[in-house]
Design a protein around this nucleic acid. Structure first.
Length: 565
DNA sequence: GCCGTTTTCGGCCCGACTGTTTTCAGTCG
């Protein structure tokens, strides 16, 4: 098992113990151990071999034993027994905004709520009212949080499906009956939230596909459906579909399955105007043996990339000759939002800088948290001074990359910043973000963010809506007003590339672009490996119609410095 | 369950905010 997997098990143990009503101090120890492993730069296997697991703060004899068991057997019996007894679904309750371990525990023990569905039934059956300290407002908050999760239940964040997606892709590719395979559907359009995982294969034998899928860990109940589709599920009931087609029909089917209905309907209107049969299932004769490019060409259109096939707008733009040349991941020349172990990151400044250099970046900004973010070990003004000093030294010692001294400074409730201007003035770049006080009204939040934008030292607004994919909607804010202010003050809005954020989202990016806002695709990396997450952000940027010049960190170092000076 | 003791049990932790209370319990970042 990997560090991350072991950390997750320990964190789940902590939550299950708390829900069960165990001693909170005992339960929290598991969470602290999970956190300690989460920020650990060393490999647990290595530490175990050297018998140094106990050197990790918060890990004693008992947890050491469980870690060793997991490393050796891939299982933890103590955890398995808890799951056996309580069910794994009770952990889903903790994803609800406003429900922590205490409330989940009371719901579990007093109302026998063991899943989101149980909670829905309890709320609808008015059973929460009977609990102590459970007033109308609290119930409404829980109901609202649950409703949000219910809207997300049929979807999965892209990152959560990535691993199994690549496993299935490789297995299909290696199947001797399969001549060709591609991703299609939501995944190929690079949606950040998927409704299904779709593949298209050139293969005459659907039975062979079922056989391949049956042999894969993490894929459940593959069956052949009518019209050569194979349906299965992955990741607790998430739909997986494989479309089997002939060589002649392959690319027409790829086009049809990649496009949303809106995109395909518009394409077929154009086809109809030329007296051509509609593209669909089965593909018409005129499309046989044509590539996707040929098919668009036949309709008088340039090739439209999958990311822009979510609606018909790209077709209108193409007809008008206004299709943008979209940004590529290779256009990114630096990262302007990263963390180190000075605050809540895993690695040192030097490690982050070396890793950024390995990614191919020309510059990296170190932007640790500011003093108000106490849980994130935010830097005091004194520590920031010290860090600036150290960054300047490292910059002279390391060749081939420029290290910028920065800060991800909190935007306080009133829109003022968490550090005085005199300190911000010493930094090369300031990212300003909201980390607390999410419940302001839209007007207040908008004013708060605009006030931050108006600060002359602020160059980027970090994760502008605060959303967490599938977990938390963004806070109420008027993004049009924020965009206008950002454009006026030449402050960039961030596309936070952290796969669990992807904030701004594509439609907001597109609106910002129309308002002449500069954007910045940053990883918000808290560990060296996360410096490679830029591609997730570029997906969003592409779906938001961005070209290279719309994105601050595609600039050369000189151009960047001029822009942010 | 972990940690650190003038060493074997007693205390664990960060502060703002909210809702349900009338002094506090719980969540969140």
């Amino acid at each position: 098992m990997t560090n991350d997997e072991i950390s997750e098990v320990l964190s789940n143990i902590s939550n299950l113990l708390q829900i069960q009503g165990d001693d909170t101090f005992r339960a929290r120890i598991y969470d602290r151990a999970a956190e300690a492993i989460d920020v650990l730069s060393a490999d647990l296997h290595q530490l175990a071999e050297e018998e140094r697991l106990r050197s990790i703060p918060g890990i004693g004899q008992a947890i050491e034993g469980k870690i060793v068991e997991m490393l050796e057997t891939g299982r933890c019996r103590f955890y398995d027994d808890l799951v056996e007894e309580m069910g794994a679904e009770v952990l889903d309750l903790l994803a609800i905004r406003g429900v922590g371990a205490k409330t989940a525990g009371r719901l579990y023990r007093e109302l026998c709520v063991k899943s989101l569905a149980d909670l829905r039934a309890a709320i609808d059956g008015d059973r929460l009212k009977q609990m102590k300290r459970m007033g109308a407002k609290t119930i409404a908050t829980i109901d609202e949080g649950l409703r949000f999760l219910e809207t997300q239940q049929a979807m999965r964040p892209l990152w959560q499906i990535l691993q199994i997606a690549s496993t299935v892709f490789e297995a299909l590719k290696n199947c001797s009956d399969v001549k060709r395979v591609d991703f299609t559907g939501d995944f190929r359009r690079r949606e950040e939230m998927l409704r299904s995982l779709d593949f298209i294969v050139e293969c005459a034998d659907t039975g062979a596909i079922v056989e391949v899928l049956s042999g894969l860990d993490g894929v459940a109940s593959p069956i052949i459906q009518a019209d050569l589709h194979i349906a299965a599920s992955v990741d607790r009931g998430f739909p997986l579909r494989v479309h089997c087609v002939s060589a002649e029909a392959y690319e027409a089917a790829l086009l049809a399955t990649t496009s949303t209905d809106a995109h395909l309907v518009r394409l077929n209107q154009i086809a109809a105007a030329q007296a051509l049969e509609a593209i669909g299932q089965p593909p018409p004769d005129w499309s046989a043996n044509k590539t996707e490019s040929d098919l668009y060409g036949k309709l008088g259109l340039p090739f439209i990339v999958p990311e822009l096939r979510g609606d018909a707008n790209s077709i209108e733009a193409a007809l008008a000759g206004n299709l943008p040349t979209l940004i590529e991941t290779s256009d990114l020349r630096g990262d302007l939002h990263t963390h180190t172990n000075w605050s809540d990151g895993r690695h040192s400044i030097r490690e982050m800088v070396e890793a950024a250099k390995a990614v191919g970046h020309e510059y990296i900004a170190i932007t640790d948290h500011s003093q108000s973010s106490r849980v994130a070990n935010g830097l005091s003004p004194e520590r920031l001074q010290e860090q600036i000093q150290q960054i300047r030294e490292i910059n002279t010692e390391i060749d081939g990359i420029e290290v910028l001294a920065g800060s991800e400074v909190d935007i306080l409730r009133d829109g003022s910043l968490d550090f005085p201007d005199a300190l911000l003035a010493q930094l090369d770049i300031v990212v300003a973000s909201v980390h607390a006080g999410f419940s302001l009204s839209e007007t207040e939040m908008t004013e708060r963010m605009i006030r931050a934008i108006e600060n002359p030292f602020v160059k980027i607004i970090g994760h502008p809506t605060g959303r967490l994919l599938g977990q938390r909607p963004g806070y109420a804010v008027n993004l049009d007003a924020v965009s206008d202010a950002a454009a006026a003050h030449r402050v960039a809005l961030e596309i936070n590339a952290s796969p669990s954020r992807l904030d701004l989202e594509p439609s907001a990016v597109r609106k910002a672009r129309v308002r002449n806002v500069l954007l910045s695709v940053n990883t918000d990396a808290h560990a060296t490996a996360q410096l490679q997450h830029g591609a997730f952000g570029v997906n969003v940027a592409r779906r938001g119609w961005l070209t290279k010049i719309d994105v601050l960190n595609t600039y050369s170092l000189a151009a960047l410095k001029e822009t942010i000076s």
